[in-house]
Design a binder for these strands. Structure first.
Lengths: 358, 358
DNA sequence: CTGTTAGCGCTTTCAT
DNA sequence: ATGAAAGCGCTAACAG
């Protein structure tokens, strides 16, 4: 009796076996490329032909049940969507996963620990082979309650768990920024927005931002440079950038402006425009992140980009790697050059590369 | 002999049954809330207690194999990430799915038909209960090769397939835009950027955009209004907005500007600033989409928003609905009011709501 | 009312 | 070299 099956009539190994005139086991061996099993070439060919004719596709659910291997990773983030940061990571992971024949099961937790725990459990119930934790806002995450036998990796968040973390190399990013400005010829008239290097470190600043700041400070020191002016911002949003820049212009006339992220720079652009100061002729602007709108600004904003996608790719590679890795991964940040930087008007030509005291 | 199981020792129904001193079947009935089976309250309590004590979690893979129901939907899009549009839909779907205990399996196809087909097949291999197709760029999609017995729904794309589509109500959105401007008092000096209403319809314009344009035209006609000036743009990017606005200003001096999307408006802002024209005092600006940066502009851009999230939510609701729906769903667009609109300087006060001929 | 049984489709020993 | 058979963990139909 042929039961009218619910899911239409998906082709199973049994059907292929019957058509090829062999056993189910034999078909399985051939179609799942089992290495240690010698099936005669003729039979093998017959099986493959039968499978093709029937349009056989393996039932991954059954295979997963049998092998405890699902070709699926979980991807949990406080915000998967919204910001370019999160979507960049997702994009990278998606691509890397696809290349390996994997799919991603997504969950968004809004930073809520309970939701995260629930998501992780549900994912494990569904047999994921590993989980990537990504974060926008978090500084240091608490352990997410992943059983030891489920591989996991943290992206853009350092965790107290034993899993490894993938982070942008903000320290070097900060250095790159200062170097870029210095090599364009800016030395004594650089202003910075987002942090006050004379004050104590902002308590609210996230971990990675702190490294960014440290990198900037280090490179400034190495070159014997000091900021002409600096403004701390309690939040790195457009509005604060606008306000801070207006403030700066009341007191000083920088040739270059370093913004701690693109949104601040966006605000600064507006303040600069209001003051009828041209970018980059009057003041060069450099920032961090390479947000979506950075290329749409006029002139295009030169910025030290966070390697979102690369980080997402690495996350998948780590999950797929055999042994547990030991140390965190620092992914290099790269300068995305657009039109917002020029040599200062007053002292033309690039400055010498070596540090020089005044 | 207790085999050292691979996935640590996940608690199974068998373990719970043993602890509770009942059969596996009984436990299954209780824990999966099988309605038609009368298990005595005492036994039921004993089972629940045992499950709790052991921390039992159902193996969804096994359950799926048995029931052909995975509590998982596929989400395939040409670009899941990058644009706010796509991520908004994803966000909505994610939330709605979560509320129903569902997860989303994601795939990004870059608009490639081969990739899409492959993704769909792989998802079905994994037993998804339905698939949502979302699109950024597409106009009309070809059928995606989904078997009839897998529910599917299209978001922001009309398909030739028999699945229903969820689309923004662009026609009304266009009307809202014109009405907003008219009610603010703008009548005879409205310029528009992105399309030339005197020419033939731009062949390259996507389907939804075409409806947007039709809505604008209809509302203008209903009110007996005509555009002071208009510029077609072959691509709705920031740069074209800037160029178009500069052009407009050479010939005309509008009191209001209608941009066919936010990026064009962003460019127009820049041209307006260059011309030392203040928004909204000198010219009001209104556009469409509510892109991420719309709130960051200065002044904040008033825009007719695409209901991304709502569309994403509806997609999941449609998949979960019992019977196949018949007609497409048009989701209303809403005006997001910010600061870019004011009454025109020349003729103060709102215009009468009824249309009036010149 | 409860326990036993028969698979879902697949992989993997183990006999032949 | 190939086929038969035993489950992975669960649900649903059927005995008891």
């Amino acid at each position: 009796m042929i039961p009218a099956h619910p899911r239409s009539s998906r082709v199973t190994l049994a059907r292929v076996a019957k058509l090829a005139g062999v056993s189910i086991g034999a078909v399985s061996q051939v179609l799942s490329d089992n290495p240690n099993s010698r099936i005669s070439a003729t039979v093998r060919a017959r099986i493959i032909a039968a499978a093709a004719e029937l349009g056989y596709r393996p039932n991954m659910v059954a295979r997963t049940l049998r092998t405890s291997k699902s070709s699926t990773y979980g991807f949990v983030s406080d915000t998967v969507t919204i910001t370019r940061f999160a979507t960049g990571i997702l994009r990278g992971s998606l691509r890397a996963a696809h290349e390996r024949g994997y799919f991603l099961l997504i969950a968004e937790t809004a930073g809520d620990e309970e939701q995260e725990k629930e998501a992780v459990e549900s994912m494990i119930d569904r047999g994921v082979d590993g989980i990537v934790f990504a974060a926008m806002k978090s500084r240091t995450s608490s352990p997410h309650g992943v059983p030891r036998w489920v591989p996991s990796v943290n992206v853009n968040m350092s965790s107290t768990a034993e899993a490894i973390s993938i982070l942008p190399d903000e320290l070097n990013g900060g250095r790159i920024a200062v170097r870029t400005l210095a090599e364009a010829g800016h030395r004594d008239r650089i202003a910075i927005i987002g942090h006050d290097f004379r004050g104590s470190p902002d308590a609210h600043v996230a971990l990675t931002a702190r490294r960014r700041i440290a990198g900037i400070a280090a490179e400034m020191a190495d070159r014997g440079l000091e900021f002409l002016d600096q403004r701390a911002c309690d939040d790195w949003q457009t509005e604060q950038g606008y306000l801070a820049m207006r403030d700066v212009l009341k007191h000083a006339r920088p040739t270059a402006l370093l913004c701690l992220n693109d949104r601040l720079a966006f605000g600064a652009y507006q303040a600069l425009a209001e003051a009828h100061l041209a970018i980059p002729e009057d003041v060069s602007v450099l920032s961090f992140d390479d947000d979506e709108f950075a290329a749409s600004l006029r002139p295009g904003l030169t910025t030290v980009a966070i390697p979102h996608e690369r980080m997402g790719v690495l996350a998948i590679e780590v999950l797929g790697a055999p042994g547990p890795m030991t140390s965190d991964l620092l992914v290099p940040m790269a300068l995305h050059t657009r039109e917002s930087i020029a040599a200062p008007k007053t002292s033309r030509g690039p400055a010498p590369h070596t540090a020089q005291d005044p």
